[in-house]
Design a binder for these strands. Structure first.
Lengths: 337, 337
DNA sequence: TTTATATTTTGTAGCGCTACAATTCATGGA
DNA sequence: TCCATGAATTGTAGCGCTACAAAATATAAA
């Protein structure tokens, strides 16, 4: 009398079980606890499963066991290579531990909130976020569900765990390079309405370091985050209007820095003689463009590895709450400064 | 006597039902068929759900209904902006139809196969792939499950449906630009062991067009796909060894073309006077670099829109099997040719 | 008032899988 | 021979949700 609703005719454990002449539980055990099943039986089940093209239904497994092998990562952008290594690090590490990484894109905290809901709805094993600015409601729900959550690219005061590097230290380090090479009129390009502290934190540090050194700290231009390379020309124009004596400029990303270099090229200005340019992120273009860009190189791959490792550990019951890992950064000195 | 296994203490429809003094089915209806529930009841249920921080369990809903609101997209790379607009198109369109887009990265057809398995395991509503080269086993399983599948960036002979533009037409069009401007010794940069037909298809077309025009068609360099900008210098060196009289070069992507431009800059060569450079893809850098890159601009956003639209339509029961949509391309002429 | 009809709510069963407990079966020692 | 032990297999119930049908309630027509 069992009334089965018509589903897409997918192979189930049940159908494998009948075909192999064993109980459904033996099929389940074959996949989840192979050592509990006799070699001969296991091989037969595996063979039949392969023949029928069986793909386990994660949704059902998830529901029954309350566990998941999927980790959700939410990244702000795939417009350039910024998160490439980070995602690679996460993906590789997830695979090592037998987990899957799925991504969602979210360029605003509102979209991030929606993505978080989707992932929670999918009952993922954990969530990796970029940055530490989130919708209050999103933070709320993450805390309520007590899911393993890693915030990356930033340090400090995490919802659950964090992996990143110090923006303060990196900003100081890149300024150090410029100051030690004798640049005295340093311009700052930041982002207007930046979506993330990762960017907004830098300006006050810039100001305080330069003020302390007795140098002008008001040579600031805020660019539109969506502009990419295009921000370079605009920024250069405004900065030279404010401070015609500018001899160096630090950029929010290597993309903007490359845009500045392109514009210098158009104007026929020599870099770094006429003006020095520092980037951020060690994007691929930083080493390829001429002159090479001096930049901040975060250990993005390690950050990805560490993020997933921490999620997996928490999913396995370790208590990492409040743990914050600093994966550091390097200053890569190239010809642009 | 109901023995409940301890799950993470998440809010369920059941708990909302008790709190609201209605049956679980009313809660379910409130979310799935709001019009079936009286205004007053619906509002009360919604309010309580929001208060408790309820997030519907997609895994369970999926299992019960056999339907899914999640579309899986598998993309080869996020290393540069190539798939940015495509993904945006998919994401926006999915949102319009009330679907969610999740991504997986897969840089080889083997990884693609694994990603397909994951998505089928998650019982997504449909899958978007890039290119038409896949593992036989992957094709097999996709056909067996009869899931809506779109292959994009290519045309012809789809597993299920396809959205793309003609590589042949685009290759001819870009060659046309070079030939009509009088370039006669055209070099070709391709990819060695390219993962995709999208790239390998171009070389034979290049050869046949040039042979037909009575021009040399053997000025070919195959670069490593992983090299990015770095492929430019290597390619230029080898091409000039093979054919010192080269006056133009067409590149597999704008990234490689930019690498060529950087190298020309290092060598002090004027573009396009000494050599013309054509790219492919209309990446952001194409319009920003000096000189601007002549390139093939696929309608990536529309491709993404169309892909998801077709998946959604199929998921709703329309029969689009075998449907192939050509979203076309434009040649963007800039100063590099 | 009664009956037919529409509106709203609620049981029931089952989606595919797994935790857990129970069962079966072979083996070896008392 | 009987019982204890361990290995292999199987039954049962339930994960959270939804399709479907049945029931309760409200509304209109007779």
């Amino acid at each position: 009398m069992t009334k089965r609703r018509e589903q897409v005719g997918l192979v189930t454990m049940h159908s494998i079980a009948s075909a192999a002449g064993v109980s459904p539980m033996t099929v389940s055990n074959t996949f989840r606890y192979p050592e509990r099943v006799q070699d001969e039986t296991r091989q037969r089940v595996m063979r039949i499963a392969a023949e029928l093209g069986y793909v386990p239904n994660h949704a059902a497994g998830n529901l029954a066991s309350g566990q998941s092998r999927v980790i959700g990562a939410i990244i702000p952008s795939i417009k350039n290579s910024s998160f490439y290594k980070y995602v690679r690090g996460m993906q590789d590490t997830a695979a090592e531990h037998g987990y899957e990484l799925v991504l969602k894109l979210a360029d605003t905290i509102c979209h991030e909130h929606a993505a978080i809901q989707t992932f929670i709805g999918l009952r993922v094993a954990g969530i990796a976020l970029v940055g530490n600015e989130h919708e209050p409601a999103a933070i709320d729900i993450l805390q309520k569900t007590a899911l393993p959550v890693v915030e990356s690219w930033v340090l400090g005061n995490p919802i659950d765990m964090a992996v990143g590097y110090s923006t303060t230290a990196a900003t100081k380090a890149i300024l150090d390079v410029l100051l030690s090479r004798g640049y005295r009129n340093i311009g700052f390009i930041g982002y207007e309405r930046a979506a993330s502290h990762r960017f907004t934190e830098r300006l006050p540090i810039f100001r305080s370091v330069l003020a302390q050194a007795g140098l002008p700290s008001d040579l600031v231009h805020l660019a539109d985050e969506a502009d990419g390379f295009g921000a370079g020309p605009k920024a250069l124009e405004e900065l030279f209007r404010i401070g015609p004596r500018i001899d160096a400029v630090i950029c929010p990303t290597d993309i903007v820095a490359a845009g500045v270099l392109f514009e210098c090229g158009r104007r026929g200005w020599k870099v770094p003689d006429r003006i020095a340019v520092a980037g951020w992120g060690d994007y691929e273009i930083a080493s390829e463009i001429t002159p090479g860009l001096t930049t901040v190189q975060p250990n993005a791959y390690e950050m990805g590895q560490q993020s997933v490792t921490m999620i997996v550990e928490r999913a396995r019951g370790n208590r990492n709450q409040g743990r914050v890992v600093d994966t550091g950064f390097q200053i890569i000195k190239r010809a642009s400064t």
